[in-house]
Write a protein that binds this DNA or RNA. Structure first.
Lengths: 139, 139
DNA sequence: GAGTATATATGTTTATGTCATATAGATGCC
DNA sequence: GGCATCTATATGACATAAACATATATACTC
């Protein structure tokens, strides 16, 4: 999703855990980012990626492929509606708009992200405390 | 993993997204929680679950099945070592201990969780701002 | 015409959580 | 003894979701 620390991980293994290279282990971000972008303004996928980049000052760069899939799912669920956009030149654009249900979903995401923040806060505290106890640099 | 808000989600759909029921979309927590527990004290799986519950005042209750799998993976990677514990009665216990590599992994998890906190903070801000702009309760 | 930016879409692999189930030893109770 | 229950480890099945790769097509520039 974005620059998670990729640092040299446990050698001698194929897996990349926290400092992973791929996989969804980091937690859902594309869907809430898409909802946030659409709360800000209607738009089409390719541009929403830039919107998200701008809104986060370059800190969140979603995978466009994942973004398109996410938008399709959201449409299936009724959280967004789409239409082919006629204006402009170049490849056609599918423009998305939030529905009332999409607003509710955004609220639910907000709750869920706050829960995740809380859990991460707990774990960060535990790891930090544990590492300090073990005589490790407390970062 | 723990009580993510399960509230009534977008009706008319099978999928449960943020307010999901199952699936790993919430982000990695079992492995860092296990490392945190082992930083605190050596232990065996079934008991580590309780340790984690205690350390988080009941807020993080990891799935034991997932915990065992996580410990196995950590051992494959060299982050922990294990031995069958002879003491005590009842079913045998496999006791785990952190290695030097495991300490390093815990540090990497700490970094990764802080990055995730930062990203969640950004998204929470965007969703909150967007919902307020849309005239929604700003929670 | 070749290369590049825009735009949408899909395939594949990996990481992870969640729920269900299997197996076994130990203990208590009727 | 038989049965439920707690402890303890382990695995199967399914769902969610990111990351990377690739395919297709339009338009603009050199």
């Amino acid at each position: 999703m974005v620059s998670m620390p990729r640092g040299d991980c446990a050698e001698g293994s194929q897996r990349q855990p926290c400092c992973r290279r791929r996989g969804g282990g980091g937690g859902a971000l594309v869907e809430p980012a898409a909802l946030a972008a659409l709360l800000y303004a209607d738009g089409y996928g390719y541009d929403m990626r830039r919107t998200i980049l701008d809104m986060t000052e370059g800190e969140v760069d979603v995978d466009v492929g994942g973004l398109y899939r996410s938008l399709r799912r959201l449409e299936d669920e009724g959280a967004v509606t789409s239409r082919w956009c006629e204006e402009g030149t170049g490849p056609r654009r599918r423009e998305y708009e939030l529905t009332e249900q999409g607003m509710e979903l955004a609220e639910q995401w907000l709750d869920a992200l706050r829960v995740r923040q809380r859990l991460d806060e707990l774990l960060v505290g535990l790891l930090d405390g544990g590492l300090a106890k073990a005589g490790r640099k407390d970062t």
